[in-house]
Nucleic acid binder design. Structure first.
Length: 165
DNA sequence: GTCACGATTTGT
DNA sequence: CAAATCGTGACG
């Protein structure tokens, strides 16, 4: 029953590699979900826009934990953003899920549509209702790379990946 | 304890 | 372009 769930090893890789690999995979939570269409990478080093850039704090603790867990934070006091923890344990890289098939663009609208809140922060994507399933890649697919959305620091880095089919 | 600041969205 | 809205992190 869990044969299609992506294994821990999928997440224990370089953040950019995980970000690109997540495109096309299926995010599911309590009966709702869809293929991941847009993601952004937040690097463990040299990335001033990453929450972990300032070091280990109470909020960023999950980022330093084992890969394959959800990092959910509240943006602008009203929108939850879902991230996937990457890299081996102790290395705080993560991937922001910005869009899923069947849901309007925007990380805040995505979590709202799937019912994901701060309660899901820290949940294990390998063994919880919040999970990502392997999905066969489409016949024709390509990945568009652009700078990330809505950040000021390290804004020039090409770390946003969009699946084009 | 206090305060400035957003990895957003929506309306003017 | 500006408001809404609140957890977090820095500072004292």
């Amino acid at each position: 029953m869990t044969a299609r769930v992506l294994p821990r090893s999928f997440y224990a890789r370089p953040t950019v590699e995980v970000a690109r690999s997540l495109l096309g995979q299926r995010l599911e939570f309590r009966g709702r979900g869809g293929r991941i269409l847009e993601v952004e990478a937040y690097l463990p080093e040299g990335d001033e826009a990453a929450h972990a850039y300032r070091g280990r704090t109470e909020r960023t603790e999950v980022l330093f934990g084992p890969p394959g867990h959800a990092y959910v934070f509240l943006a602008y006091g009203m929108h939850c953003c879902l991230n996937v923890v990457a890299e081996p344990e102790g290395v705080p890289g993560c991937v922001l899920i910005r869009a899923v098939e069947g849901v309007g663009d925007g990380p805040g609208k995505l979590t709202r549509a799937l019912g994901i809140t701060l309660e899901q922060n820290g949940w294990d994507l390998v063994s919880s209702p919040l999970r990502i399933l392997h999905q066969p890649p489409p016949a024709h697919e390509s990945i568009t790379v652009t700078p990330r959305i809505g950040i000021r620091r390290s804004a020039q880095l090409p770390l946003r990946f969009v699946l084009e089919t």
